[in-house]
Computed example of a mutant assay.
Amino acid sequence: MSEIQANSIGKYSGNNVSLSDPLKFKSYTTTQRDALSSVAGDVIYNTTTQKLELFTNGAWTQMGGIDAFSLEYLLVAGGGGGGSGRNSQSGGSNAGGGGAGGLLSNVSGDNTGGGVSAQPAFYAVTGQAYRVRVGAGGLKGEGAYAQQPSNERSGRPGTRSQFHEFKARGGGAGAGRNFSYSSGTDDRSLSYGTTGGSGGGGHTGTANNSEEQQGYDGGAGNNSNYNAGGGGGAGAVGGTWASGAVAGTGITSSILTTTEATAESVGVVSSGYVYFAGGGGGGGNTNNGAPAGGLGGGGRGSSTNADNGVDGTANTGGGGGGGASRTDGYGWDGSNGGSGVVILRYPSDFTCTVGAGLTQSTNSPLTQGTKKVTILTAGLGTVTFS
């Protein structure tokens, strides 16, 4: 039996009812509402649609306002490509690793890259087409392997990922041995990577800055012995030449479980967590071996007279590994950055229609209790909710 509770009831003259406090209706989700034994005239507040609703003519009717709902997003941009090593018979002339793609999230309890707290809550509306873009990994620096003289180019930056007006910036490119792609010419005085969501690793003594607080700086190289820096990650700065040019680590996200991430080939699972946006390792030499990529999809760098580096992992935003020099007169090329990903989580009462031009993961959309998760792994297009 329902009851009314009040501190006091007063009598007023005239045809009106006055309340000293706001009138609050009982709250239900859509699922809870549909389980009620409702009769005509019942009024509730639906926390899923965020509206008052009236039961009339055998159905629930919304009582004004737009049909809005809370939507969570994780945006990871494409990682930057690693630079190419030097044609050097003496060795030791290595290139920077690619920076991780910028990471932007509004998932409660998670962080955005660069140590920034989650972005504010966002309320989507039905019927609106939201623009989505999944960032591609930056191309490797090439022109070193099997070419004399080598071009020793920097990698290229990754491209941005986007949902609506929110954008994650592409990862910075790793510096090539004495060549900067950003200059557009073979300018041997430029030997630093580019800025980006996370900075690309340097070749000489310049650290490379992240932008928009979505990741960390790349590591600096060293002028005297031409060692390189690792690419910055979403969770840490890239290592310098003295630490073996290791890369910055990525960060975790709770928007997917480890089981889901593994099944959908998204992110990197480690120790019970899902990581994204690790930087690429810089090129190594015979003393420091092949520098590791950052946890979260960053590719390791190559090592002198050993092998090429490793591409950043797809759908993680990991940076590509940097190229090393070779003592036979050639150099190793850099490695490509990993592609990014866009992940959206919303109430299961709504349907997400993915437009042409976008690619979903294998089992998308996933169901997480009262939520659905749409995972977009490539392309450019729009999504609409109903």
Rank of each mutant, 00 (worst) to 15 (best):
T384H: 03
T49V: 09
T384M: 01
K372N: 14
G281E: 04
E3L: 06
G41Y: 11
L376E: 04
G293W: 04
G357K: 02
Q162I: 08
S270Y: 09
T259N: 14
Y273P: 00
G232L: 07
R345C: 05
G78D: 10
T206H: 14
M63F: 04
F385D: 02
N87S: 06
S361Y: 02
T112G: 07
G65C: 04
G299I: 03
W332L: 00
S20W: 09
L366V: 08
Y45H: 10
N106K: 05
T382F: 06
G323L: 01
T286I: 12
T249Y: 13
Q119I: 01
D311A: 14
A292T: 15
N209W: 09
T185M: 05
L75C: 12
A263W: 03
V274W: 08
S154D: 05
S243E: 15
V107C: 06
G272S: 05
G320W: 05
F55Q: 04
Y73M: 02
K371A: 10
G137M: 09
S154F: 00
G267T: 03
A121L: 12
F69I: 05
F179K: 05
S38I: 00
A356E: 10
F163W: 08
T195R: 13
V268C: 00
G250F: 01
S27W: 03
D34Q: 12
G81A: 10
S117I: 10
D307K: 08
S180M: 10
T370S: 15
T262Y: 07
A220H: 12
G155Y: 02
